[in-house]
Design a protein around this nucleic acid. Structure first.
Lengths: 153, 153
DNA sequence: ATTTAAATAATAATGATTACAATTTAAGAA
DNA sequence: TTCTTAAATTGTAATCATTATTATTTAAAT
C-alpha cells in the first residue's frame, strides 16, 4: 500500500521483470488509489502522461501486479474487474446497485481472520472478503428493481 | 441448501414468480450441487431431462435464484461464474490454478462472522469469503508458471 | 555499442453473457 | 373448463471486456 517507487522497482527486479516507464506510471496510479479502479480507469488516467500507452499494457501490468501480490483483483458482477492495492485481510464493502467498493478494516481484523484461517490446514496465498449492501446514495433513489442487475428505477 | 421442492415452489409464489418445469429442474440440480456449477454445467445436466431447454433460460434462472437469495454467484478469474447454494457465511476455498471451489464451514464461523460484521453499521444483504491456494492436485503438477492465469506446465 | 529476450502498441479474435423478438405457457378470472 | 394475458421460454444475434497475436521497441546484460 504505502510502497514507494524504489520499493516497487526493487520488487520488479527481484521477481525478474523489467522496469518500464509504463509499469511505473501504472503502479503509481493504482497502488495509491482508494477507489478500486477498473482497467479502463487506469488506462484513461495514465494515458494523460503517456499518450502512447496501450490498453493491452494496462491489462498485462495489472495482472502482473496481482500475480506478484501487490494487487487484489476483484471480479465484479458487471463483469468488469476492479483492483485493490490493499492485499491484506480486510472487508470490501460493495454496493450491489452501483458497484461502489469501500475498504473497511475492522479493528481486530487480523486477529479474527487468523482465527478463521487457523483450521484450514494450509497457508492461503490470498483472500477476498466481501460484504454486500445497497449504499446510502442508492437507497435514496428508493425503488429497487427485482430484476437482474438490481438497478434502480 | 436443504430446500425441498415444496419450499422452492412456495418461495417462487411468495416472490411473485411463476413456477415452471424448467425452473424447478434447474433448482433441483443447482440447489443440491456440491461442486459450484457453472451455467454451462447446469445447462448440460438439466438439458438431459428437458431437451428443449435454452441456455438463456439457465442464465435467467440462476440470476433469479441469486436475486431472491437462494444462490450466491461467484465471479471467478476465468470470467465464468459459479453458483453456490450455500448462502450463509462460509469460506470458499478456491484453487488459483484449476479454479476448484470447496466450501469450508469453520466451527465458529457464524460467531466470528457476526463479530466482524458488528462494526459495519448496517445489515449486509450478503457476503463472500474466499481463501485462495493451489490445491493438492495442482501442487503435484509441480511447476507453476509466473504468467497470468497461473496455469501449470 | 551490441545483443536479445522481454515489453509495448495496435489491432484482431474470443467467448461468456445479455438483448431481442417470436412463441409458448402459468395461473388467475369468468 | 376455457379464456386471457402478462410472464417465461427459445433460438439467435449482439455486446464488450478480455485475451491473443504480431510487428516494433526497449531494458538491461554482455
Amino acid at each position: 500500500m504505502a510502497m514507494n517507487i524504489e520499493q516497487i522497482i526493487a520488487k520488479f527486479h527481484e521477481e525478474g521483470f523489467k522496469v518500464t516507464p509504463q509499469r511505473l506510471a501504472i503502479c503509481e496510479y493504482v497502488l495509491s488509489s482508494k477507489d478500486h479502479p477498473t482497467t479502463d480507469m487506469a488506462y484513461a488516467e495514465v494515458k494523460r502522461k503517456y499518450p502512447t500507452l496501450s490498453l493491452a499494457t494496462v491489462y498485462q501490468t495489472l495482472h502482473l501486479l496481482a500475480d506478484i501480490g501487490l494487487l487484489q483483483e476483484l471480479e465484479m458482477d458487471d463483469r468488469v474487474s476492479r483492483y485493490d492495492p490493499n492485499t491484506s485481510p480486510h472487508i470490501n464493502i460493495i454496493c450491489k446497485n452501483c458497484g461502489m467498493v469501500e475498504d473497511y478494516d475492522a479493528k481486530d481484523m487480523a486477529k479474527l481472520w487468523s482465527e478463521i484461517v487457523k483450521g484450514l490446514g494450509f497457508e492461503p496465498i490470498g483472500q477476498r472478503i466481501d460484504v454486500y449492501r445497497y449504499c446510502e446514495k442508492c437507497l435514496k433513489k428508493v425503488k429497487i428493481k427485482k430484476t437482474r442487475g438490481v438497478s434502480l428505477v
